[in-house]
Amino acid sequence: MTQKLTPTQMAWRAAQDIADGAYVNLGIGFPEMVAKFQPPGREAIFHTENGILGFGEAPAAGAEDWDLINAGKKAVTIKPGTAFFHHADSFAMVRGGHLDVAILGAYEVAETGDLANWSTGPRGVPAVGGAMDLVHGAKTVAVITDHVTKDGKPKLVQRCSLPLTGVGCVTRIYSSLAVIDIVDGHFVLREKLAAFSVSDLQALTGATLHLDGAVADLDVPAL
């Protein structure tokens, strides 16, 4: 049985597309790992909703300063070039088209670019945070997600069944099996794991996979 990509490997693949000089927001959870895999020679500036641009890695245990945290409430550090700002400026950066890349998690992504990633239904306590803002404004809005749910159902679908985070907002998907762009309301397959045929992938996808030229191998180191 061929292995699907781990979340770490998906994060590595997403990191390869981040250009030198890009301003990037990474969602809480798996997407945060993207920062670790910046290719050598490239400098991306990371943004966090609570008002920091250009923050550094986590401090050593015991060295935390709890006024210096990221959106996931984890301690971070400053480094030369760090900037602080208030929340309205922070979301002006988000909505105002100033970010180059936002990378989020997903429960479902539709071929229309609709994203569902904030609510699994009416039970429990609803919480949205910055997700509904982050899907608007960045030039690339990408998701990192398993290709299918734990019980094997497609997460890439024709129409989302869960409450939406945003309409027509996702531009690229880094799944555990493939890299897929969303173009004019279609999934366009760009890369796939070599062990899977296009028809294998289609069987695991809830909407038509379109081809636009050759499909490259999704080649990721073991990590």
Partner: peptide, 17 residues
């Protein structure tokens, strides 16, 4: 969940603005 407190949920950037 016990219905003792009301919640108005607002997206974070909308809350700030």
């Amino acid at each position: 969940l016990a219905g003792h407190i009301a919640l108005e949920l607002v997206p974070q950037g909308t809350l700030a603005e």
